[in-house]
Design a protein around this nucleic acid. Structure first.
Lengths: 327, 327
DNA sequence: CTGAAAGCGCTTACAG
DNA sequence: CTGAAAGCGCTTACAG
């Protein structure tokens, strides 16, 4: 492997000069610069990243800490983050916390030891015990410590769902919320409920039922059944909005079991746009998480070295498919 | 950040000695060693990894290059590799090739530049243009260049399926193969077909039909229909073995459309054990890819620095569920 | 068994 | 604008 010294010798300059053209330092005069570049080319010179890291105390690597890369949402995020990082010549170091706060702490400190230039964390713990550091950290999707949070605008997304259902003429509506201990779940609920309340009035009232459950399939199925079973068509909701696709798919199943046709007799909506959402029958109307924007924003935060910056909520898009229809 | 020098001063020894206890070099006498360890503890000393990398020209990081981390199989692999690496105090650098040979080449060389101590690649290209290097490289799942390949024992897995179907009494069987341009597809087919041929004899002959398709859902559905439609029950196969779960799920769908009951009238098997396999109705009998073993084996190859080593085929387990029954 | 010292390949004040 | 030189924090022959 040729070193900067070899290049300097070949180009007939000092290593300092080579280093300066490497750093795209504009102070190097044109003819010299060209000579150096030619020498680098000829030798197929590649800077030794470890040496650079030792000097600068930072490396062109972004750390990414997720609960579990096996979760499709996190995998999508990881992919897009890797692409954004690659655009800037950076690599990404991947770590999983396996939903364990202690592992998360360890992994974070391992990342810090490696002198990465920034860390993106999708939190498992609240991160309250994290020691301050001067490498920029941002939390993605779930809040971590006092670091800025970049997340989908859950409030806005739920409002869009509310508008969609309202404009289809639904006036007897149920909302299946997620566990209200979670910030996401509260925001989604709040967005939906507040919009419905704003839309409702004495002449044209909306009947809204809210039920809290888990974010998963089983919870959706169970609540769906309780909402739909044993009631005449004019006593049950004409639309059920779920706080997650998983729940919505559970509702779909309960409707099928009860022989209630979706979307003819019942409209169903989810949130997230997981892969299954477009595979299920009927395909699910939902809000797509803005994964690319989330990734792009997270990476650019790292580069701005903008540790004090504020939270950012990124709007998702509503994708209307076959599970919703006029009331 | 305290350095090795600070530790040396505090312990009243030379930096060489500190470095030796760091390296678990047993030549350091006990009392000294203890003093050094106490000093490290007290200062919360963490070695500067970049400095170490510069000296040793290698870093405690394994590179992982996959076509697309969004593919659940690769994500599982990544997770297990990360866990194995973590056990040994190593991190993993993640790169995606997005199924593009050129990107793959670039990513590989980026990984090499970072002086990782080994690279695991799930190939996109045949890797024939890879320059030789002295960092150990292994290919996982798909062959890459002349590096050793660790993969599921597709031949063996298919044999297990063949045995399973045979022992259930099936004698009119169809096999849906994958594209025979792919090594995996050939091995799976070969395992199944050769076993069936060995099992068949004049007194108790097996009627075996083999159809080649793509590995995907649509292909399975289409071939399933062609195998099943418009034939009386005694003219169509009593079992269809597919070379992938995706295909098998397609077959399930075609059977449902044709009102052929699985597993009563038809047994169906897949290969891979994707998540969907246990979600589908009826749940699919298949061969589980030995992901943990694959990951463990890949990582340990890197550590053995065993670049010349041979390929390794790791057996998967058959998981019998509800899509198979006696003929 | 331990210390003193060289050196890994860069970057960056400091001169000139 | 460019060069000479110090130094980042380690590891590892080399002595003793």
């Amino acid at each position: 492997m040729p070193t900067i010294k070899d290049v300097a010798r070949k180009a007939g300059v000092s290593v300092g000069t080579v280093s300066r053209v490497l750093a795209k330092n504009e102070t190097v005069k044109h003819p010299l610069k060209l000579r150096v570049q030619a020498a680098m080319e000829e030798l197929d010179y590649k800077p030794n990243l470890a040496a650079r890291a030792l000097r600068t105390n930072s490396i062109d690597v972004i750390g990414l800490l997720v609960p579990d890369i096996t979760n499709p949402f996190f995998a999508q995020l990881a992919k897009n983050i890797e692409m954004e990082a690659a655009k800037r010549g950076h690599s990404v170091m991947l770590a999983n916390s396996h939903d364990d706060p202690e592992t998360e702490r360890l992994q974070l400190s391992a990342l810090l030891d490696r002198a990465v230039c920034g860390i993106i964390v999708v939190a498992t713990s609240d991160g309250s015990e994290t020691k301050p550091t001067d490498v920029p950290i941002v939390s993605l999707d779930r809040r971590f410590g006092s670091y800025p949070l970049l997340a989908t605008d859950h409030f806005d997304g739920s409002q869009k769902i509310a508008d969609h259902l309202y404009s289809l003429g639904h006036r007897r509506i149920a909302y299946i919320a997620g566990p209200q201990t979670m910030e996401v779940a509260r925001q989604r609920r709040e967005g939906f409920v507040s919009r419905m309340e704003a839309l409702s009035n004495a002449q044209d009232p909306i009947g809204l039922t809210v039920v809290e459950g888990q974010f998963d399939y089983d919870s959706g199925e169970e609540i769906g059944r309780s909402l739909l079973a044993g009631r005449p068509a004019d006593k049950r909701p004409t639309a059920i909005a779920a706080a997650s696709d998983q729940q919505a798919i559970g509702v779909l199943r309960s409707a099928r079991d009860l022989k209630i046709a979706v979307p003819v007799e019942l409209s169903v909506t989810g949130f997230d746009d997981i892969t299954l959402a477009s595979l299920v029958v009927p395909r699910l109307t939902t809000v797509r998480q803005p994964i690319e924007s989330l990734a792009a924003s997270a990476v650019s935060r790292i580069f701005k070295d903008d540790t004090t910056a504020a939270d950012e909520a990124i709007a998702g898009e509503i994708v209307v498919r076959e599970s919703t229809a006029p009331a």
